[in-house]
């Protein structure tokens, strides 16, 4: 086997799709191994800071980990965002609670654990308003994923004839 033939055989073995994944993983493993040997710096001044973990829970706040101040529909809550000048109604979503959540907060001390599943609160402020484009994109990615998934199922995994069979 000549040198050029060996070289082209090497190139052929590399161009298989599974070698591509292996080569990429090798690159990532090297980068991660380098990263493990260093310390990391943290910038203390962050956007949307939150209090120390468990601080609100210990003080008995009914909206425990997600209380950011404000009164629903009266006073906006605190949201330290990047561009306040582009967000005229900043903070209102943070302070908003649905009537049901308000009732729950009065009668239960653990309302904060369910607040993520009701409209209103700091997470909804970031997800829908200040960084809304991220969430719209995320749902579009899910949309494309489902389109590919259902198309492959209908055309390949289960053929059209199987799909239309009588049940």
């Amino acid at each position: 086997m000549s040198a050029s033939e060996g070289f082209s055989r090497l190139l052929l073995s590399v161009r298989r799709p599974e070698s591509m994944v292996s080569a990429y993983c090798l690159l990532l493993a090297v980068i991660a191994a380098v990263g493990l040997t260093h310390g990391y710096h943290y910038h203390r001044k962050q956007l949307y800071p939150r209090p120390e973990p468990q601080l609100q829970v210990k003080s008995g706040d009914p909206l425990a980990p997600y209380d950011r101040g404000g009164i629903p529909l009266r006073r906006p809550g605190i949201a330290v965002s990047q561009y306040p000048q582009f967000e005229p109604s900043r903070g209102w979503v943070t302070s908003y609670l649905t009537p049901f959540t308000r009732w729950l907060a009065r009668h239960s001390r653990h309302c904060g654990t369910t607040i993520v599943s009701h409209p209103g609160g700091i997470l909804d402020e970031i997800l829908y308003y200040t960084r809304g484009l991220d969430t719209v994109l995320e749902s579009s990615i899910m949309f494309v994923g489902f389109v590919i998934f259902s198309w492959v199922v209908r055309m390949k995994t289960v053929t059209e004839r199987e799909m239309g069979r009588r049940e």
């Binding site: 962050q46 995320e138 899910m142 994923g145 489902f146 998934f149 995994t157």
Partner: peptide
Amino acid sequence: VGTDLAECLILPGLVVGLAELMATSE
């Protein structure tokens, strides 16, 4: 990162992984 922003960034990260995993496995 441990801020409210980080908690919100987890959600898109999770969903992207989920959608890609589903299409790839199919």
